[in-house]
Amino acid sequence: MELSSKIYIAGHNGMVGSAILRYLKQKGYTNFLLKSSAELDLTNQEKVALFFESEKPDYVFLAAAKVGGIEANNTYRGQFLYENLMIQNNVIHQSYAHKVKKLLFYASSCIYPKYASQPINEDALLTGSLEPTNEPYAIAKIAGIKLCENYNRQYGCNFISVMPTNLYGPNDNYDLNNSHVLPALLRKFHEAKINNKSTVEVWGTGEPKREFLHVDDLAAASFNLMQNYSLDISVNIGTGTDISIKNLAELIKKIVDYKGEIIWNNDKPDGTPRKLLDVSLINSLGWKYSIELENGIREVYTNKFLKK
């Protein structure tokens, strides 16, 4: 990408899209196409076609998606499948139709089988059953990966896909019903502290392990791939290390300085037992994460909950 290239970031107000925008601005890029969901409904085929026809972007970061945690994924199953399929189909197809030079599609580590061998290599895709609670979302993301792969094969496009691990950072979602585990825990412990509650309830057993990546690191990895990578193989992006939900809760309790007790609700689902990504491919391309988990969480907590 040249500094003058016209870059469309789909989902620029979200956590991933806003991180990409921040990173590219720091690199000196200035020519951005930015449309909120209110300004451009990406599920509407006609409107997306008109947008690409009039604007003709050179590069596309497809970060727009309907997203949520276990509860949201399991509750809005049809909506998650339909909206994500529509967003992906419209943006990817119009990128082909209007000769976009390169597109980067954001999938998710939930595309891998529930019991995939750890750490999960890119080759594990479609080798086993998905985790039931997020199956609709995962199926949509798998379809997006395969759409990119097969547009490359049939039409000679340069569309690449990435599988980020669990993300956190600025512009995260802190809704207790629809958010992911890390922001939900931050909010729970913070509110318990300021309201002098003696206990905090955390879902599940605490046994599952998760890998967490700061979204600013994802933006740096995305830039690396947009500049240097053009193969059909989707690329894992993560840290290569994970932490149990129990230890994550204890870490957040320490960062928030909450003095009460953690109560584990074993009636709530754990989800996939472990999702540690094999990041040897992205590391071989010259990228490695830089933000350690405790430092990243402290920064997020300070900026979100302590600054007025």
Results as ranks from 00 to 15, higher is better:
L81Q: 02
L306N: 07
A140H: 01
N228G: 08
K47D: 11
H93M: 07
G28V: 11
G260H: 02
G169S: 06
D172E: 05
G240S: 08
M15C: 12
K254S: 15
V202N: 09
A10W: 00
S37F: 07
E46V: 14
S108K: 07
S284Y: 01
G128S: 01
F32G: 08
Q227A: 12
M163Q: 13
Y82D: 09
D123M: 14
N13A: 06
N196D: 01
L33G: 15
S244Q: 03
K27G: 04
K254I: 13
G204K: 05
K275V: 06
D242T: 06
A138Q: 00
T75H: 00
I233M: 11
Y76M: 12
H190W: 14
E83F: 02
G69S: 03
P136E: 01
I233F: 03
L281C: 09
G78D: 01
Y174C: 04
L3A: 15
G128R: 04
G286A: 10
K288S: 06
A72H: 02
L182M: 10
E71K: 12
R210K: 05
E122G: 10
K114C: 01
I20H: 15
I243L: 01
S290H: 14
L186H: 13
D217G: 14
S95Q: 06
N166Q: 11
T75E: 00
K275P: 07
L185Q: 08
A10G: 06
E71L: 09
D242E: 03
L147F: 15
H12I: 07
S179M: 00
E53A: 13
E207G: 07
L182I: 09
S280M: 02
V91N: 05
L103R: 04
L40C: 08
M163N: 11
Y301F: 06
T30N: 04
A116Y: 00
G169L: 03
I87S: 02
T133C: 08
N228S: 12
E53I: 10
S18Q: 15
W264A: 13
S37M: 13
V200A: 05
A124L: 08
I263M: 03
N73V: 01
A140D: 00
C110T: 12
S95T: 08
G206T: 14
N84M: 00
A138H: 00
E71Y: 06
Y82N: 11
L281P: 02
F159Q: 07
I70Y: 02
A192W: 01
H180L: 12
